[in-house]
């Protein structure tokens, strides 16, 4: 029997939306079952949420105080112990999945397919390379397939499932060489999560300062949008790093992406190529962002934000 195991991403209380996107990809494989594993210290609430994802057969709940925080070196041996029952093991290609899955793959002596954007068959996949400027179609070698799923390429599976939850204990030796110290959140507040938001308002170097970014936040709040940024804006200290969109930041696919004062470097465009509609506002009429924008406006971004807010 061919089954796929999806590793759930969560913060101990809530399932991350990336998990349901990975389940969508897993469903495309056309295998006999899609199971989800929740590794947590106390994960029953998360397991309940995972059980509701449409298409999931069984949720495996592995509880261990060591799983309080998602540390790759501690989670990996537990996933390795579970992998024997599966033909595929997938995780979302978020920082969680990127950190964890290659560690699992190497222990099992398997290569990994990173950032799966399309499933052609159970062993053939498309994935982006060169900052999304080329797409390669790859075939995994015979045997266990390990991969991460580019979440921007998949819509979240819906929420009317009723999978059973099975508590599992796994026999694995867990290392003590890695200790979680703390997490300092970027302070996104109540705004929608960047990777799940239907609308994103983003600012670049052209915004000019941390103070000026308030205009971006204000417009985002009016639209119910998440807030993104270019690398230049993050490096300049205008906004925390977890807002960065691009090849090395977050890859997003909102319905509406509004770029203010962003020139549109290759590395930034890699993060927004799948957005539904791209709007660019920039003073420089030759900025490369206009080559991908559905609607471009050459103007001062602060004047535009002010007028937009009045018009909304």
């Amino acid at each position: 029997m061919s089954k796929v195991l999806v590793i759930a991403e969560h913060d101990g209380a809530n399932l991350n939306g990336s998990t349901a996107r990975a389940v969508s990809c897993a469903a495309d494989l056309g295998l006999d079952a899609v199971d989800v594993v929740v590794l947590a210290a106390d994960g029953s609430a998360v397991a309940e949420q995972a059980a509701k994802i449409t298409g999931v057969s069984t949720v495996l709940l592995v509880q261990n105080p060591a799983n309080e925080n998602a540390v790759a070196a501690i989670l990996a041996p537990q996933i390795e112990a579970l992998a024997a029952d599966y033909s595929h093991v997938l995780a979302p290609s978020t920082t969680f999945g990127k950190d964890l899955m290659p560690r699992v793959a190497a222990h099992l002596g398997r290569p990994q397919i990173s950032d799966i954007m399309r499933v052609e068959s159970a062993t053939v996949f498309d994935r982006p390379v060169y900052a999304g400027n080329a797409v390669i179609t790859v075939e995994a070698p015979e045997g266990l397939v390990i991969g991460t799923v580019r979440t921007a390429s998949y819509k979240a599976a819906s929420n009317d499932g009723s999978a059973s939850v099975e508590t599992r204990s796994v026999d694995a030796t867990l290392p003590s060489h890695t200790r979680f110290v703390g997490l300092e959140s970027g302070g996104g507040g109540d705004r929608p999560d960047l990777q799940a938001a239907a609308k994103v308002v983003s600012g670049g170097r052209g915004v000019g300062s941390e103070e000026n970014f308030k205009a971006i936040y204000s417009l985002a709040d009016k639209l119910g949008a998440g807030v993104g940024a270019s690398r230049a804006a993050v490096d300049a200290g205008f906004i925390p790093n977890d807002h960065q969109v691009g090849q090395t930041g977050k890859i997003i696919a909102p319905d509406l992406y509004m770029a203010f004062g962003i020139s549109g470097a290759i590395q930034h465009l890699a993060g927004i190529k799948d957005a539904g509609t791209i709007v660019a506002i920039n003073k420089d009429a030759d900025a490369p962002i206009f080559e991908v924008a559905d609607f471009g406006l050459v103007a001062d971004l602060f004047e535009v934000i002010e007028e937009l807010e009045k018009a909304l």
Binding site: G109, R110, P111, I113, V124, P128, V129, G132, N133, A134, V135, I136, T137, V138, E139, A140, P141, E142, G143, K273, I278, V279, F290, E291, V292, A293, D294, F295, G296, L297, V298, A299, V304, E307, L308, A311, L312
Partner: peptide, 28 residues
Amino acid sequence: APTVKVIKTTAPAKREAGIKVGSVAELV
């Protein structure tokens, strides 16, 4: 190690060229 075989390399789907609008009202 067992290797992932690259079957083909393609250019990504191009986004259709958009339009430039003249004012915020037009954009809205």
